[in-house]
């Protein structure tokens, strides 16, 4: 059972001071990738991905197509391949301006929720910003669990802590690698709603294999499919996020994306 606090989804609205990170609002990022080869196998070639400032860009594709590799290149976990370039709208390097959220919560198992949020501060040798940590814990609705260890929380709650830790950094660019994919449908749906509110004004790259998630959260959606994988043209659904799946336009986009994904998968097999 999910020991969820049912009121958490209203937490952000009731907050008088939703966090607004000072400084650089909205940096655009442009990745132009010549070729990515793993063990002699060309996974991606001739790819150009633009992350629009202050928007959520969803990269949607089947497993193993190379979505995560794109994110890892931007994060610097994989070195940038030759003839490839990352440029930003303000001309400065990405270094130190990125936050990252993984499919796994990556919480420190020995530390409380509160201390997990402070890990960035501590690793950098800064004075921990306890006020900000407490505010974020409130925004994701986990005040009651502030001093609990991760192993006493449900999967959905742990992922909320991970989201709060990601936002704790105050970076203007967020890279999210299937952040909600390990959760059950209901928990996932609620977390997407929460994320949509908390991620405003951030430049976000969200990797997902779930068309529903892309349509709920993506300002701009790209489908990545084929071998070597290619990007579709941008899909820009109307309406603001988080979108309602009951909407007519939603289901139209959904079936169009499914057809596209299914077609590409058949081509490959």
């Amino acid at each position: 059972m999910e020991p969820d606090n049912p009121t958490y989804s209203d937490a952000a609205e009731s907050m008088p001071d939703v966090l607004h990170d000072q400084g650089e609002a909205g940096i655009g990022v442009d990745l132009s990738l010549d070729e990515l080869v793993f063990d002699g196998d060309t996974i991606l070639s001739d790819l150009n991905l633009e992350l629009e400032p202050g928007k959520i860009t969803c990269l949607l594709g089947p497993s193993g197509v190379g979505k995560s590799s794109i994110l890892k290149i931007l994060a610097g976990f994989i070195p940038l391949p030759g003839n490839s370039r990352v440029t930003t709208s303000d001309g400065k390097s990405l270094e130190g301006r990125l936050s990252y959220m993984d499919q796994k919560d990556l919480l420190l198992p020995w530390a409380s929720v509160f201390d997990n949020l402070l890990i960035g501060n501590r690793l950098r040798g800064e004075i921990p910003d306890r006020v900000r940590a407490d505010r974020l814990i409130k925004q994701v609705g986990l005040e009651k669990w502030r001093d609990s260890r991760p192993d006493t929380l449900s999967g959905g709650m742990r992922q909320r802590v991970a989201l709060a830790r990601t936002l704790m950094e105050g970076s203007s660019i967020l890279l999210m690698d299937e952040p909600f994919s390990a959760l059950d449908a209901i928990t996932k749906f609620r977390l997407q709603g929460l994320a949509a509110r908390l991620l405003t004004e951030k430049t976000v790259l969200l990797i997902t294999h779930d068309p529903m998630e892309a349509l709920r959260l993506g300002d701009v959606i790209y489908v990545l499919a084929g071998h070597p994988a290619r990007l579709s043209e941008a899909i820009r659904p109307e309406k603001d996020i988080p979108r309602d799946p009951a909407d007519d336009a939603f289901s139209q986009h959904y079936s169009a994306i499914m057809t596209r994904l299914a077609g590409e998968t058949e081509d490959a097999s």
Binding site: A75, R97, Y100, I119, G120, L123, R124, E169, S171
Partner: peptide
């Protein structure tokens, strides 16, 4: 490695 990656990213913006 996922932890080292994350920690590396978290440390990037530090001034120490």
């Amino acid at each position: 490695p996922v932890w080292l990656n994350l920690a590396g990213l978290l440390q990037q913006s530090g001034r120490t």
